[in-house]
Each structure stands twice: as structure tokens, then as C-alpha cells.
């Protein structure tokens, strides 16, 4: 997806217990409420600059908040980690936030938790409609070549997590039961050793 030159990008380094999709979106929306701006694209990124990899988040805002510094600091509290604005060249920017901003700018990585049009999708949707109605630019199949008329079952909640690849927001799909396609990332994959000490 090509962002306009005036797009406002922020990068964050959420604490480990804030990186789950629902927590992340709730923290972002809560912090931005009443700020005059909203998050229209929220992506997670993997930062490998430290021995243990961490998750960073990139956020594209609908515009500049009324008080950017204050809003950033509210968001930093919500994420329990630093938040920086894109375009700043602060050497002290934490690894995950910097990685998120760099990858978002290049469009070569990043997993979209929210993207324009994502809220409108639910249930079974033809590939062509997904591309027309959302920011998803291409639908790529694993072991299958999707046609525009092929149907993607996004589930009752319209769960989609497209990833940036080569500058394009790409939804990976695979075959599913019943002759439809399903997103490669599903909402409820099996959790191994649930309740375990792992």
C-alpha cells in the first residue's frame, strides 16, 4: 500500500504483555481517543536487534493529533514502552519501534492487525471483493492459485492479518474444507500445552 507523503507514522515498542492483537488495538484506541486522530493501519513487526527478538508496532494515523507529544506519551503508557514519531532520527529510539518504522516505510514486512477496510469484512468474501473493499492489494495462495471469484472464508469475525511483502499488503490464503479458501493465519490456531508451565 502506498502511503501518502503526509501520512503520520508512529512506532512503538510494546511490553511483552501488550503485544497480543486485542491488547494492542485496545491500548492504541484508548490512547488516541479524543486526540483528533485515529489509527487506520496498525502492524506488528519482529525486531531482531537484541538477543531475544521483540515485537514492535507501527501505526499510521489519520492525521496529526492536536497535541502529538502528549498523545504519544499517553500511548507510551498504554503500551508500557516507548513511542516515537516517524521521520525523527533519534538515535535513542528503541529497537522494536525503530524496526517497525523502517519496515513500515519500506513496506517489506509487517503484519497488519488493522488496515483500511478491515472492519467491514466478515464471513465469506470473494477475492476480488477483498481487494476492492480493503487495503489488501493482493491475495496469494499457498499450494493454490486464487482466482478473483474464489471465496475466502474470513470467519464470523472477519479475521484477516495480511502482511506487507515487496511494498504490497498481501493476504496469504490456503485451501479449506468445503471448496473455499481460508486465510493462512486464522483467528484460533491450536494452542500447544495450554495451562502448562511453558
Amino acid at each position: 500500500m502506498t502511503a501518502s507523503l503526509t501520512a503520520v507514522w508512529w512506532g512503538g515498542a510494546p511490553a511483552a504483555d501488550r503485544v497480543a492483537d486485542a491488547h494492542l488495538l485496545a491500548a492504541v484506541d484508548e490512547a488516541l481517543a479524543g486526540s483528533g486522530a485515529a489509527a487506520e493501519l496498525v502492524c506488528t513487526h519482529v525486531d531482531g536487534s537484541a538477543p531475544a527478538p521483540r515485537v514492535g508496532v507501527s501505526i499510521r494515523l489519520t492525521g496529526e493529533p492536536a497535541d502529538p507529544a502528549a498523545t504519544r506519551s499517553v500511548l507510551a503508557r498504554a503500551l508500557a514502552g516507548p513511542v516515537v514519531a516517524g521521520g525523527t532520527h533519534d538515535a535513542d529510539v528503541a529497537g522494536p519501534a525503530r524496526t517497525a518504522l523502517v519496515e513500515a516505510a519500506a513496506g517489506d514486512a509487517g503484519r497488519a492487525v488493522r488496515f483500511p477496510g478491515s472492519a467491514s469484512v466478515t464471513g465469506r468474501v470473494p477475492v476480488a471483493d477483498l481487494i476492492a473493499a480493503t487495503a489488501i492489494e493482493q491475495v496469494v495462495g499457498i499450494g493454490v492459485e486464487p482466482a478473483g471469484t474464489d471465496v475466502v472464508d474470513t470467519g464470523p469475525n472477519g479475521f484477516l492479518r495480511p502482511r506487507f511483502s515487496g511494498g504490497r499488503l498481501t493476504l496469504l490464503v490456503e485451501r479449506a474444507a468445503g471448496g473455499v479458501l481460508q486465510p493462512f493465519e486464522i483467528e484460533d490456531p491450536h494452542q500447544c500445552c495450554e495451562g502448562g508451565g511453558h
Partner: peptide, 28 residues
């Protein structure tokens, strides 16, 4: 439809969600 769990064979049904995954591994 055959009375089964309808999950991934081997419970291999995730998309590489962990931050500590080996990034060059392909989706399949």
C-alpha cells in the same frame, strides 16, 4: 463433516506467530 475436530493435521495450523521464529522459513 466427518465428525472430527477440523483442525490442522498434527495441530500444524498456525502462521508463524512467534517473534522468535526463524524468519527465513517459508509459510508452508
Amino acid at each position: 463433516s466427518q465428525g472430527g475436530p477440523g483442525s490442522g493435521r498434527g495441530y500444524y495450523d498456525n502462521a508463524g506467530a512467534r517473534a522468535d521464529r526463524f524468519l527465513p522459513y517459508p509459510p508452508e
